[in-house]
């Protein structure tokens, strides 16, 4: 565990909690893509099946359980408790266009052709694109609440910090995982445009809105 990995995990945790609190405090999930949140719940579920088969550390187990619990709580708030505020008309990204190709790729390109390994690979690939429905929704409505942009920024930082973590691990532990690294690069690249808007607009105190 290096400092970049820990900072990445905490940034990820912050993102998840910011989103939960935003929905809870405002009693509304307006502007949030329920599809992205379902995809993230699917990502955690398929990746953390090793909770049952493989113990790594108390930190690892606790964080996995928190991520899983928060992911399902978010989906519950969006689709059950605050369903009336869910902006389904703007959440029109076709999630099956992500899940099906990613599932096919996980079958073809993996470290080992076993159920758990394929599901782990699927979760890595899916995570890299799971934010697309949310970004699509923002591009469609042309704006995002500031708190939503903080959520996205923390989520993007998590990925960027993981990239630095992998560079660190490559140099100091001679350790790398090509599947995770390639997917992580793709995921980070998807955030670049958003990072630019966040820095030039939100951090200057302006609301994030896109030109019509």
């Amino acid at each position: 565990m290096n400092i970049f990995r820990l900072a990445g995990d905490l940034s990820h945790l912050a993102a998840i909690i910011v989103l939960l609190l935003k929905i809870w405090k405002t009693r509304s999930c307006a502007g949030i893509s329920g599809k992205s949140q379902i995809l993230f719940a699917l990502v955690f579920t398929t990746r953390y099946l090793d909770l049952f088969t493989n113990f790594i550390s108390p930190y690892n187990t606790v964080m996995k359980m928190i991520y899983l619990g928060c992911a399902y709580a978010t989906v519950y708030l969006i689709y059950m408790k605050f369903k009336a505020t869910y902006d389904g008309n703007h959440d029109t990204f076709r999630a099956e266009f992500l899940v099906v190709p990613v599932g096919g790729l996980a079958f073809l390109v993996n470290h080992e052709f076993s159920p758990l390994e394929i599901l782990w690979t699927f979760s890595i690939y899916l995570e890299s694109v799971a934010i697309l429905p949310q970004l699509f929704m923002i591009s469609k409505t042309g704006e995002a609440e500031t708190i939503t942009t903080h959520y996205l920024f923390a989520l993007g930082m998590y990925r960027a910090l993981y990239l630095i973590n992998w560079i660190w691990r490559y140099y100091f532990e001679n350790f790398f995982d090509l599947i995770a690294i390639v997917a992580g690069c793709v995921q980070t690249i998807l955030y670049c445009d958003f990072f630019y808007l966040y820095i030039t607009k939100v951090l200057q105190g302006k609301k994030l809105s896109l030109p019509a």
Binding site: H12, N54, M63, K64, H111, W120, I124, F175, I179, A180
Partner: peptide, 10 residues
């Protein structure tokens, strides 16, 4: 045997 990095990462 090459273990996947993701196994100890989140």
């Amino acid at each position: 045997e090459q273990e996947s990095a993701g196994k100890d990462e989140l």
